[in-house]
Design a protein around this nucleic acid. Structure first.
Lengths: 223, 223
DNA sequence: TCTCATACCGTACAAATGTCTGGCATGGGT
DNA sequence: ACCCATGCCAGACATTTGTACGGTATGAGA
């Protein structure tokens, strides 16, 4: 193997490693070596280490297939042993629920559409689930029918947050508002649509027909 | 470690391995061992091998971190046939680009914000990347400033598709339209905003200042 | 010329990791 | 009782893989 222009080969090495990492199969040093026909593992290693020094790759020293992409911190499972320092993966598979019912733990719901991957670095303990948006009532907030709402289960919310509430047996996405009302002791709850044709809903917080399912933390739309 | 109900532990092992694979980090036998507190690597191995025999996992014998999800070569996907209905979507980590330039291969861009996980079952060969949306010009299509657009690199598009185009050195998200014009031979290209205050853009397809970067396949908004 | 950096090769060694052989205990069935 | 499958442990061995130390050759500058 002769020499190649400076940086030329390294660029190709990066692409190769990157492709492998993106598809879930971290390469070994020797796989990189073979891919480019290097006659020495050291050559591959030098390229890799250089990419790490340049911040284009990250690595877990000593681990087999230890090269990673920078940016998102993947990691091993929740650590319990003393082994290498690995972090918990912020990546989760979130179930998309076909229908929601009050009081039914989402983990027990069988009627699900599938799973979507989501990065969840938050430490909040609420379970996550996905819900398909129906209706135009949040149109002006950029939430359209068919969108997938990622919801964190919680029974309270702050004013202005977009939430999923269960009214009767219907799940609905609205902006949660605590309105100060002088006539009452305390505040009252309102569910605001984001569309001129829809009216504000004022549920009775104590009613059996009203349940706050959680807060919408992300909207996804497939085109 | 005492005994546990039949299959109980194996189910947990499977979930652990699956989670790791989905996040791009195949576990070692010993990592599984540590995760569940087994005192022997063999115990972990037996669970893993059993999962392979049951078709729930696949493996590359002899390779370090050689366990895979069945179906596809990568993160998972496809069906495996037997066993519980567990499909693993083909999962990739997609780079979020801070800025885009014409002619620069996305793999060479260093200025990236991070990576997001995305399911890509399509067989299209175009590379994927993420781009932060700026401006209000697509507001009425439910695409707001700060949204993350997932883009598949391609140099052509069909009329009506939402695309990312490079005008000069500015990347912009618009609806791609092929307008039939009688005066010309062939059609002309238009980039339509989705906001009354913005005007249709009619780029010169042959200009150096116009490049079609790709098609928007998904919109994500963090709330 | 001399240094220095880049690009590559050769050959090891040691750690990480996959694999194997043998054993123990429990429970279900015959 | 016997057989057999399951769940687990113990201790090794062999391969894969990361890492280290040293070498050759070329080109850019000082």
């Amino acid at each position: 193997m002769g020499k190649t222009p400076p940086g030329r080969t390294r660029e190709r090495v990066f692409r190769f490693v990157r492709q492998r990492l993106l598809s879930g199969q971290p390469p070994t040093v020797r796989e990189v070596q073979a891919q480019f026909g290097f006659l020495s593992t050291q050559t591959a290693r030098e390229h890799l280490e250089r990419l790490v020094r340049d911040g284009r790759l990250r690595k877990e020293p000593g681990q087999a297939r230890g090269y990673r992409l920078p940016g998102s911190e993947f990691g091993g499972g929740g650590r319990s042993g003393r082994g290498p320092p690995l972090k918990g993966p912020p990546l989760k598979m979130v179930p998309i629920l076909g229908q929601v019912q009050a009081g039914v733990p989402i983990t027990a719901v069988e009627d699900l559409e599938g799973y979507v991957p989501i990065e969840d670095s938050s430490t909040s303990s609420g379970e996550l689930f996905g819900l398909r948006v129906r209706g135009e009532s949040m149109r002006d907030a950029g939430i359209l029918p068919g969108d997938l709402a990622i919801v964190r289960q919680q029974s309270t919310a702050r004013s202005g947050e977009i939430v999923v509430a269960l009214l009767g047996d219907e799940a609905t996405v609205k902006t949660f508002v605590r309105a100060r009302v002088k006539t009452h002791r305390g505040a009252r709850i309102e569910l605001h649509p984001a569309h001129p044709d829809f009216a504000v809903i004022v549920p009775d917080p104590d009613s059996e027909d009203f349940h706050l399912l959680g807060r919408v933390i992300e909207i996804r739309r497939r085109l």
